[in-house]
Design a binder for these strands. Structure first.
Lengths: 198, 198
DNA sequence: TGCGGGTACGGAGACAGCCTCCGTTTCGAT
DNA sequence: ATCGAAACGGAGGCTGTCTCCGTACCCGCA
């Protein structure tokens, strides 16, 4: 994203090729086996040695963050769509749902996201996207509060937590879709103003 | 609990000693490092070989369930206290809080509990206690609904899920107590009847 | 108290995954 | 074509899981 081209050296071809192969293999494995999948297996499938994988992505979170970038952009696009909505309450609902889908991209994703959400830790490559999501949620919450749809005591961070939690429940695979819908309804009636008409 | 004494053989002394030592060591390690702790380390601290640990407790879940039994009894005791309350709404609130504390006994506990909650799997040693908790929650929910304090669409299972989720958030250690309180408040205002006075 | 049979012990070892180090290869610039 | 730098990759050290089987221990009976 902010790939600094300032140093005169241009990137080597094999570097680019390997990075792309790693990202593709990692996405496949994350999708199939969850984020806890064997990184050795990812490297093998990408046709590189483990050393190369760790040079490109020093930690599992770094790899995860890189794989997630595509989805982050998709989420930004949805955000742009949602921002067009006139009904602040509906916008908030859709945004929460979009976040939940994002958090459900890979099984096990909510865990590192929660850890990254405490910010404090600038070394964590997931911290920045998390902070952005919380800030955006807060914007939607405030707008809906101004329109009188959401209780004043609710904060963006609270609904971020709720969305991550629902995604976590979903990810454990222990619950059917109907229960999940009731859980979402519980959250929604939790943040809505009591005397809200809609 | 339902230790079948039907077979004439009486248990050997070393078996009992080792089992007790294992449970104690496991509890210490679960408390300190979470349920993902090294079982080898547990065995070593208990002064037994790995083989002995795995003979007594074939899986991590089996060991976890055994360690959890003490706490399960404590929870049953609290349930008895709570059952004395006259206000059904207050009883439900306290029961949810008691469950949440139970789920927070060890870091990482919510994960296997959710997996066990889907029941389907009678081999899982955590399934039975989970089912009991869900049933109990449902009782409290129905009582509170009869008193008009809880929306009719809410089910015991939903609040079980909510309690596990809050415990999960707590267990990630990523959130301060104030945010956690707001999350609980969100859940509570989610299940309460809108025009409820209390 | 000593003996015998059967149960339980425990550690060696096979296996998998993480991560690093460094000799070798490959790339791009000159 | 050559050279220096940068990247590769796999061997290997480490930790953890789980099993198998020779050995030690415990209980019951004499």
């Amino acid at each position: 994203m902010s790939d600094s081209r300032q140093q005169g050296r241009k990137p080597r071809a094999d570097v680019l090729r390997n990075r792309a192969a790693l990202l593709e293999a990692a996405q496949r494995h994350f999708l199939k086996y969850g984020i806890g999948t064997s990184l050795e297996a990812v490297a093998k499938e990408a046709g590189v040695g483990p050393g190369t994988l760790y040079r490109h992505f020093p930690t599992r979170e770094a790899l995860l963050a890189a794989v997630l970038q595509t989805r982050t952009k998709e989420l930004a696009a949805r955000r742009a769509d949602i921002a067009q909505l006139e009904d602040a309450s509906e916008a908030l609902r859709q945004w929460l749902r979009a976040m939940e889908e994002y958090f459900s991209a890979f099984s096990g994703l909510p865990e590192p996201l929660m850890v990254a959400a405490r910010a404090q830790d600038p070394g964590n490559p997931l911290t920045v996207p998390c902070a952005a999501l919380i800030a955006t949620t807060d914007e939607y919450v405030r707008a809906a509060q101004l329109a009188g749809h959401v209780r004043p005591s609710v904060q963006g961070y609270d609904l971020f937590l709720a969305a991550v939690s629902v995604a976590w429940v979903k990810g454990t695979g222990a619950t059917d879709d109907v229960s999940l819908d009731r859980l979402r309804a519980l959250v929604e009636s939790g943040y809505r103003e009591r005397d809200d008409a809609a």
